[in-house]
């Protein structure tokens, strides 16, 4: 058996197991002999910030938050594009200006559509 090429590996594996399990076993033994467990309802509470938890964690959020977030994201990205456009504005040709105008107008159209749909009204 000792001549097997995997013998040293097996020895190391057992040593690694003992390295992990011995402290756990000692801790368990210590708890059994000396330190009795005294659980109670307050100690076993799930929430640990000092307050008692209320209700269920599975709650629904309003979809209005999602719409606001997506409109904000679009105009945030627009601002990222507008900044280099504004910096390079004096050196730009007609084609570049038209392309930017189309981009901005598309977003304005989106905003107008959202407005018409009543998304911006918080209800």
């Amino acid at each position: 058996m000792a001549s097997s090429p995997y013998f040293s590996l097996a020895v190391l594996f057992v040593a690694a197991l003992c390295f992990g399990l011995t402290p756990l076993a000692l801790a368990w033994l210590w708890a059994q002999v000396y330190s009795p467990a005294k659980p109670n309802a307050i100690k076993n509470a799930i929430y640990e910030c000092g307050l008692e938890s209320k209700g269920d964690a599975w709650v629904q959020f309003r979809s209005a938050y999602y719409l606001y977030a997506i409109i904000f994201l679009i105009f945030d990205v627009e601002a990222v594009f507008l900044l280099p456009f504004a910096v390079a504005f004096t050196g730009l040709g007609l084609a570049a200006c038209l392309a930017m105008l189309v981009f901005v107008l598309l977003l304005v159209e989106g905003l107008a559509w959202a407005w018409a749909k009543g998304v911006l009204t918080w209800a």
């Binding site: 330190s35 005294k38 307050i42 509470a45 000092g50 307050l51 008692e52």
Partner: peptide
């Protein structure tokens, strides 16, 4: 809250 936190600490 203080007392509850104390209760939640492990001995």
């Amino acid at each position: 809250q203080v007392v509850r936190l104390y209760n939640q600490m492990a001995e």
